[in-house]
């Protein structure tokens, strides 16, 4: 989707600025886990709007279906039963791309323009530029991108960038029957979330909170959790996600420095030749060997 080509803040494997004249408003999608009933209407809406059809899988005896994100299932509901101080709780989380403020996928991607971040915050894959290396999978702190076996391209939630560009809300938001998914400017959404937290606290969820992790500069998909102190309980939502030191090292200043180092070795070698001259056989030895041959 390149409809917002004038509004790109980050572009994979690109070191010069992308078209960024316009600053659009930052958007966010709020997933209020406390209101979700796990009906999967959003999963269906996602497949309908994006025209993806996953292969029919097998029944694992649990509600999760499909069991994991795939190249055709960009969002899945994850169900977990956990014991808390309130007894047995059934926690349901809609999983999918978090549209990170500082996306690890984009940082890791070696293909120019395969991953972009619009100025509204949406992180989008442009499959036509994707080379299928899977570095984005390595870079993502949330284990989101999926490599298709069919075309060796990666796919994930687009936050309906096409709909948003046309002023519509994402398909999942449109369809959610309980109002658990809300879409708007990030500012408005955070404000709305605060209201929800206050409400939850009042109803006894002392640890209710917003999941908008600062380790990735916040996300454009944020959760309202009843147990924000233990996000892992929600099918392994990472507690303090960040791009991490390994990926920073792999994609950071070390690379240009290595390039400079290589250039220095080459240039250094050239000047060694210029200053010291070639390493030739000395006259002396030429003569010695000549004499030996004669004798």
């Amino acid at each position: 989707m390149a409809l917002q080509s004038l509004d790109i803040t980050r572009c994979s494997a690109t070191t010069t600025p992308s078209p960024s004249q316009r600053q659009t408003q930052e958007v966010a999608k709020l997933i209020d886990v406390t209101k979700c009933i796990g009906c999967k209407a959003c999963q269906v809406a996602c497949m309908e709007w994006n025209d993806t059809r996953d292969a029919i899988g097998t029944n694992h005896g649990v509600l999760d279906n499909p069991m994991d994100l795939t190249e055709a299932s960009w969002t899945v509901m994850r169900y977990s039963e956990v014991e808390t101080d309130r007894g047995l709780e059934w926690l349901i989380r809609k999983d999918g791309c978090m549209h990170c403020g500082n996306p690890g996928c984009l940082k890791a991607c070696p293909a120019p323009g395969a991953i972009v971040q619009y100025s509204n915050g949406i992180v989008d894959f442009h499959e036509e530029n994707c080379i299928g290396c899977g570095y984005c999978i390595t870079g993502c702190p949330f284990n989101i991108p999926r490599l298709s076996k069919k075309d060796s391209k990666v796919y994930k939630c687009t936050l309906c960038s096409d709909r948003v560009a046309a002023g519509l809300e994402p398909a999942c938001v449109k369809t959610c029957p309980t109002g658990a998914i809300v879409f708007g400017t990030k500012e408005a959404i955070l404000h709305h979330a605060e209201g929800r937290i206050a409400d939850l606290k009042e109803r006894g969820y002392a640890n209710a909170g917003i999941y908008n992790p600062q380790g990735v500069d916040g996300t454009h998909v944020i959760y309202v959790l009843h147990h924000a102190d233990k996000p892992e309980m929600y099918s392994g939502l990472p507690d303090n996600p960040s791009i991490g030191p390994m990926v920073e090292l792999w994609k950071g200043a070390a690379k240009p420095l290595a390039s400079l180092g290589l250039a220095a070795v080459g240039v250094g070698a050239f000047f060694h030749y210029v200053t010291k001259g070639p390493n030739e056989v000395s006259e002396e030895i030429e003569k010695e060997v000549e004499d030996e041959n004669k004798s």
């Binding site: 284990n143 490599l147 390994m246």
Partner: peptide, 18 residues
């Protein structure tokens, strides 16, 4: 990635990339 990466935990893949 095409044949082997899925066999390894992501932390190891990150280390191997470095």
């Amino acid at each position: 990635r095409a044949y082997f990466s899925f066999l390894f935990p992501v932390g190891l893949v990150r280390f191997a990339a470095v």
